[in-house]
Design a protein around this nucleic acid. Sequence first.
DNA 1: TCTGATATACTCACTCGGTAAGTACTACTT
DNA 2: AAGTAGTACTTACCGAGTGAGTATATCAGA
Lengths: 183, 183
Amino acid sequence: MSKLNLHHIGQLSPEMALLGQLYGAPAHGYDLHRKVVVDLGQVWHLSQSQAYSILKRLAFQGEILMEEITQEKLPPRQLLYITPAGRQHFLEWLETPSGGSTRAIRMEFVTRLYFIKQYFPEKLLPLFDLQRTETFHHIQRLEKACAELPAEQVYNRMSLGLRVEQLRTTLAWLDKCLESVGS
Amino acid sequence: MSKLNLHHIGQLSPEMALLGQLYGAPAHGYDLHRKVVVDLGQVWHLSQSQAYSILKRLAFQGEILMEEITQEKLPPRQLLYITPAGRQHFLEWLETPSGGSTRAIRMEFVTRLYFIKQYFPEKLLPLFDLQRTETFHHIQRLEKACAELPAEQVYNRMSLGLRVEQLRTTLAWLDKCLESVGS
DNA sequence: TCTGATATACTCACTCGGTAAGTACTACTT
DNA sequence: AAGTAGTACTTACCGAGTGAGTATATCAGA
């Protein structure tokens, strides 16, 4: 049985969308959430409490630092900084291929694109190249799986068939993106 | 903000894939899981324990009945029957449109198709018609959302753009499916 | 005949993401 | 003076999914 199970989808998380914002400048959890909602709201659907819980995890993993700013009579606010470990993690993630599934591309790839355009515009072309070959290979893998399917498995074949078509569409879409983001 | 959040994806559950098998004949949990893995393994990735937990929920909701067959010296086995309530729920679900997202189509729609072909082959055409109009409307909704997006939201536009393309691909795929399943 | 792999059938403990709702204070408005 | 919107963060809870465990049957090969 393939390792691609429903749970894997959940691993697509807006974690890096938050961490990446801190790569630019320190901020409050509140601001990070706002920024992600505005800039990438159609990419990640991120509730406020979810954002805070992710940030807490990042802090626990040592990727961000929470500086507690106590104010008299006001509840303490937290200013968040990215740590060197966080920086490294973010940069590594930026270089990581976004995997084959359409969802991953719509979410992870677009997010990478968003940050690379901001921080490392010279790396735009390599990013697209990588994604193109990745996607292409994934198409081939799925086609192989489809070919190996016993003839009677009509519905499994349909499902795989759709995924292949989707990926082809994605390839074409990638080219359009490159244009619209300007090489 | 749209109600389509990550959690919603989880609501796509192989529940009906299991219940629908019982519509045909009573069986053991074990058999149901086997059948789903073989026939729809590329559609749902269903672990055994997950299957049992879904079945337990269905029993709790009164949609299936568990008849405990105690055997001397052997651990009790459970034969599962669908109840009238379960029958009704399944039939209602069969008529429900599969929603707009590509995932939903690949999973829910294909599953409906699988059962309708088995139990009500005369309803194949209406099923496809419904899905086509559903998908079409969803495309229009997304295009509207895209048009209303402020000009500067490049990445949100990309994301929506891809979803639209995917849905167009899906429309074409639907026609191919109808052919391959035989009208 | 003993052994060990494989299939059948089911259970349990745990993790983790996600949500809804609440808290508490500020700042603008009417 | 009161209402409402914005800022910033916390908490309790739910349910899906995983992985590992239990117990028995069966059958092939040494």
